[in-house]
Amino acid sequence: KLLSSIEQACDICRLKKLKCSKEKPKCAKCLKNNWECRYSPKTKRSPLTRAHLTEVESRLERLE
């Protein structure tokens, strides 16, 4: 599967780190437990900047 097509777990399953069936409108866990089942939009991760990478590398060197 391509990364862009990976389905996201519902908010509660993601928060509780449960295996989500990803069914809509309610996944199996939410249906069974009568929880409100919501699927928040995916958040875009910002790409690493060179400055951040350099900072992490220098912190790693100090720890070694």
Rank of each mutant, 00 (worst) to 15 (best):
K1T: 15
K1P: 15
L2C: 12
L2G: 15
L3P: 09
L3M: 12
I6A: 10
I6S: 11
E7R: 05
Q8W: 11
A9V: 10
C10F: 00
D11E: 00
D11Y: 08
D11R: 05
D11T: 02
I12M: 09
I12Y: 14
I12W: 15
C13G: 03
C13P: 01
C13F: 01
R14T: 07
R14P: 06
L15K: 09
L15V: 10
K16C: 04
K16W: 04
K17A: 06
K17R: 07
L18S: 09
L18E: 02
L18W: 10
L18C: 10
L18N: 08
K19D: 04
K19I: 04
K19C: 07
C20H: 00
K22W: 03
K22N: 06
K22H: 09
E23T: 14
K24M: 15
P25C: 00
P25I: 03
A28M: 14
A28Y: 12
K29Q: 07
K29T: 09
C30F: 06
C30S: 00
C30T: 07
L31I: 12
K32A: 11
K32T: 13
N33E: 09
N33R: 11
N33T: 08
N33H: 11
N34F: 15
N34S: 12
N34D: 12
W35L: 14
W35T: 12
W35G: 13
E36R: 13
C37F: 06
R38Q: 13
R38M: 15
R38A: 13
R38V: 10
S40V: 06
P41Y: 05
P41T: 04
P41R: 01
K42M: 12
K42L: 12
K42D: 06
K42F: 14
K42P: 15
T43S: 09
T43A: 12
T43L: 13
R45N: 00
S46P: 10
S46C: 01
P47H: 04
T49V: 08
T49H: 08
T49R: 00
R50D: 06
R50P: 00
A51P: 04
A51C: 10
A51V: 14
A51T: 04
H52S: 06
H52V: 00
H52W: 11
T54K: 03
T54Y: 08
E55G: 10
V56E: 03
E57A: 01
E57N: 01
S58K: 11
R59K: 12
R59Y: 01
R59C: 04
E61H: 12
E61R: 11
E61W: 14
E61A: 12
R62G: 08
R62F: 14
L63H: 05
L63A: 03
E64C: 10
E64Q: 14
